[in-house]
């Protein structure tokens, strides 16, 4: 028996999502997000399940998922560190943040720590150039970082102190 099935509340949310669109196919991205929320990443069985739900060819669903970097084709750690290394962030020290990751976590880009806590990715511009450098942790932007702040952040996350993200997620100024 395949256990790949949305939970009851997600089945409801699935219906609500699909109803917003002209065609079920248009709901592919939000439904993949929904699936990613439940399973953490989009395995083959999840892609097949979503294809079945939306009546789409699985090759279409899988190739579409492969196109978008926020759709995870592999599991990531509990904290997905997405470090921007575009122009402004590079200018303002993203390479030093990369070095902090290496020192604190032993991580190179596209690696996950052995305890499954952290995955590091270098990503493209996050639209946070005015508050560079930035690291996105799962869905949250941590901005105006510097090596010592970032080190502190990682150290507290390592011991499970998630409140640090909230503390460091400051309002953007204009």
């Amino acid at each position: 028996m395949s256990s790949t099935e949305f939970t009851a509340d997600r089945k409801e949310r699935f219906k609500t999502i699909v109803a917003k669109y002209e065609q079920p196919s248009c709901a592919l991205l939000p439904v993949l997000y929904l699936a990613q929320e439940q399973w953490g990443y989009l395995s083959s069985s999840v892609l097949e399940y979503v294809a079945g739900l939306l009546g789409l060819p699985v090759a279409h669903v899988a190739s579409t998922a492969s196109f978008y970097v926020m759709l995870k084709k592999k599991p990531t750690g509990k904290y997905w560190l997405q470090l921007c290394n575009n122009v402004s962030c590079t200018m303002l020290g993203s390479e030093e943040l990369l070095a902090v990751c290496k020192e604190e976590l032993g991580l190179e880009p596209n690696q996950t720590t052995g305890d499954g806590l952290f995955t590091l990715s270098c990503v493209q511009c996050l639209g946070s150039c005015g508050t560079a450098p930035v690291v996105q942790i799962n869905d949250d932007y941590v901005e105006n970082l510097n090596p010592s702040l970032f080190r502190k952040l990682l150290q507290r996350l390592k011991v499970g102190d998630e409140s640090v993200i909230g503390e460091m997620t400051k309002e953007m100024h204009s």
């Binding site: 060819p57 699985v58 090759a59 279409h60 899988a62 190739s63 492969s66 196109f67």
Partner: peptide
């Protein structure tokens, strides 16, 4: 029958069947 698609993007784009 839709067996084929192009996966990934840019110069990593790769044609193939699902799995």
């Amino acid at each position: 029958t839709n067996e084929l698609a192009i996966y990934n993007r840019g110069d990593r784009s790769t044609v193939g069947t699902y799995n």
